[in-house]
């Protein structure tokens, strides 16, 4: 059967080598203006419009992802930098730029069913949640809520006036505000990614001789982990998949705290970094050192 199909495919390919218009003319029974052809022409238009919009959204989503990632890298520098305020301000500027992109997404989706294009924008939104919650954590040492995130994603028409240069196309004056909502699932996935960043933050803060942050972080991560286990498998598949990585991050942070507690009093502060560079698996060998 497969052989038969294969030969059919070959024949078809040979046919396709002919110029298309010529081939259509051969079939004299197909009139280009028939009702069927007219409706298919309108389908063509509809499908193309939809695919174009989808592609534009994918592109925006990728931009959002990249910018959010950069913001996260920037925030990781916060710990070691003496000029903390400056870095926070800079991250705020970067996040504003991301939000402008999200505004463009929201504009594309005016009058559309958000879920129809959700797959295109979901990765970007998750990364944004990660960045924005990371910044929020550094500022306030607590978890940002979905409502809080969504509050920042309400855009007004005045804003649009200010940024005419970036959104010059698609100008229809609508006085009311519009918004983009991060779905609970996107939020959860973003928060799960956040824990990975917090783990990195924990390890690097030890490197800076900061003894308090790791304990604070392990406390916080444990709360998040408890939250995720509470949700368990009521959530979609992706959420439960993240649970495993989350557990690993938590274990790393807890081990770090353990080492700090056990060895912290013995080791001079400036040597803590060395202890952690040979951390986790090498803990046993550490015991043998003076």
């Amino acid at each position: 059967m497969s052989g038969k199909e294969g030969s059919g495919g070959f024949r078809k390919r040979k046919h396709d080598n002919f110029p298309r218009g010529q081939k259509r003319e051969e079939k004299e029974n197909v009139t280009p203006s028939s009702a069927l052809m007219t409706s298919f022409k309108s389908f063509q238009l509809e499908l193309d419009t939809r695919h174009d919009k989808y592609e534009r959204l994918v592109k925006l989503s990728r931009d959002i992802t990249i910018e959010s990632k950069r913001t996260i890298f920037l925030l990781h520098r916060f710990i070691s930098a003496p000029n903390g305020e400056e870095i926070l301000n800079e991250s705020e500027v970067k996040l504003d730029a991301v939000r402008r992109k999200i505004k463009q997404v929201a504009q594309e989706l005016i009058g559309e069913d958000v879920y129809q294009f959700h797959r295109a924008i979901s990765p970007g939104l998750q990364e944004y949640v990660e960045a924005v919650s990371f910044q929020y954590f550094i500022k306030t040492r607590s978890l940002i809520s979905v409502e809080e995130i969504n509050k920042q994603l309400i855009f007004t028409a005045e804003d649009r006036e200010e940024t005419t240069n970036t959104t010059s196309n698609s100008h229809d004056k609508q006085p009311h505000t519009w918004s983009l909502k991060v779905t609970p699932v996107d939020y959860l996935l973003g928060v799960a990614d956040l824990t990975g960043e917090l783990m990195r933050l924990c390890i690097s803060s030890v490197g800076n001789g900061d003894i308090d942050t790791p304990f604070e972080l392990s406390q916080f991560l444990r709360q998040i982990y408890d939250g995720f286990t509470f949700i368990g498998n009521t959530g979609p598949y992706e959420v439960s998949k993240k649970l495993y990585t989350l557990k690993q991050s938590l274990a790393k942070v807890e081990n770090a705290c353990y080492t700090l507690k056990v060895r912290g009093s013995e080791i001079p502060k400036h040597m803590l970094a060395d202890v952690f560079s040979t951390k986790t698996e090498l803990i046993d060998q550490d015991e043998g050192l003076p």
């Binding site: 607590s142 978890l143 809520s145 979905v146 609970p184 699932v185 939020y187 959860l188 916080f220 709360q223 998040i224 408890d226 939250g227 995720f228 509470f230 949700i231 009521t234 959530g235």
Partner: peptide, 13 residues
């Protein structure tokens, strides 16, 4: 609090 947030999310799910 974190746990309250997750309880709310669980309700939504």
């Amino acid at each position: 609090s974190v746990s309250e947030m997750f309880i709310a999310l669980q309700g939504v799910l």
